[in-house]
């Protein structure tokens, strides 16, 4: 067992965000007692209790932030995306599958928020729910305080699949397309904005090429440019580099980070790779496998230190936490990917 890491997590404030209030303990107790009986059955292992307390802490932070909005003194602490107690269930041919169970987290403006977990932990399903493609069975997801009910251009999704680019349009047309259809920009302004972001991903010379002539990495760069050109409140990335070869993936990660340095966009990034999470993330959410529950929400190492010994230690810590429980191979992983649409 790995109780130490977990105890450290729930006991040690440094791993949680500093703005969590001092009344945390009492609030937490209240939260736990309020929990229905069914939940306690799932909270038998010490690790789950730890994660629940971390969740309660985040809930507390949200409440303080909510008050802050009125008094207008902590705009930085106001969550941009607020995921609260989200349980997602979906039906397959024979089963009702619970993909995530009461997941809560908040993404702040400018966060590089990474959700990491083994396959089958419902992280992609969770991202689809944030994207508005499926509705949570329980709980709610709010973007800038507004409930998410359907897909919208304020949350642009970057998928893993290369066919997310529309093959009948050139690179430029692909990037211009959402700007025009959503009425964000039109005419020359749309083209100028699109070219700006195409240049940012270093594809200016391919602006008039069709997607099928590009390599996988270039296609993903176009998809990222298309997402960024919309300047959405939050960019949702569903393992966008998973289908790339290792060298290209590393380069794409570096490029994504340098893009972030330039524009400081908010991104919610889903991955199953722990090194990728540590390298890209500023804040990392760990989900346990099947059904996905929050195991921890921790800060990553500072930028550019992904090869340091702290990063290695963090990687081991994450690895130990994720694989603390015996992993049951989820039988419906393939179905989870086929959801929505």
């Amino acid at each position: 067992m790995f109780p130490q890491a977990d105890r450290q997590l729930c006991g040690n404030p440094p791993n949680l965000r500093p703005d969590i209030g001092t009344q945390r303990l009492s609030r937490k107790d209240k939260k736990t007692t309020r929990a229905p009986g069914g939940r306690n059955k799932l909270m038998m292992s010490g690790t789950t209790v730890a994660s629940q307390s971390a969740v309660a802490g985040v809930a507390e932070r949200k409440e303080t932030a909510g008050r802050g909005r009125v008094s207008n003194d902590s705009a930085a602490g106001q969550p941009l995306l607020d995921v609260r107690g989200v349980t997602i269930q979906y039906k397959t041919q024979a089963h009702l599958v619970t993909a995530t169970y009461r997941v809560s987290f908040s993404v702040l403006q400018g966060d590089r928020f990474v959700v990491v977990g083994p396959s089958g932990c419902g992280k992609s399903t969770l991202l689809k729910a944030v994207g508005g493609y499926l509705a949570p069975t329980e709980g709610e997801i709010r973007l800038k305080g507004e409930l998410i009910t359907k897909p919208g251009p304020d949350r642009i999704m970057v998928f893993q699949e290369f066919d997310q680019l529309l093959p009948w349009m050139t690179v430029l047309e692909n990037v211009v397309f959402p700007l025009k259809t959503t009425g964000t920009l039109s005419g020359k302004a749309a083209i100028a904005r699109a070219m700006h972001y195409i240049e940012k991903v270093k594809l200016a010379e391919f602006a008039n090429s069709y997607p099928h002539t590009l390599s996988g990495g270039m296609k993903q760069r176009v998809a990222i440019a298309r997402g960024m050109a919309m300047e959405p409140d939050i960019l949702l990335m569903d393992e966008p580099f998973a289908a790339l070869d290792a060298l290209t993936r590393t380069r794409m990660q570096d490029e994504l980070l340098s893009l972030w340095d330039e524009t400081r966009f908010t991104v919610l990034f889903v991955t199953h790779s722990i090194p990728e999470a540590i390298k890209l993330g500023s804040r990392i959410l760990l989900l346990s496998p099947h059904p996905g529950q929050v195991k921890a929400e921790i800060n990553s190492v500072p930028r550019g230190q992904e090869n340091s010994s702290e990063a290695a230690a963090l990687g081991r810590e994450i690895h130990d936490m994720l694989f603390a429980d015996q992993i049951e191979e989820a039988p419906h992983v393939a179905n989870a990917n086929a959801l929505g649409g």
Partner: peptide, 9 residues
């Protein structure tokens, strides 16, 4: 994926 892209916009 193409359907989702369309709905996203």
């Amino acid at each position: 994926t193409a359907r989702k892209v369309g709905r996203n916009y």
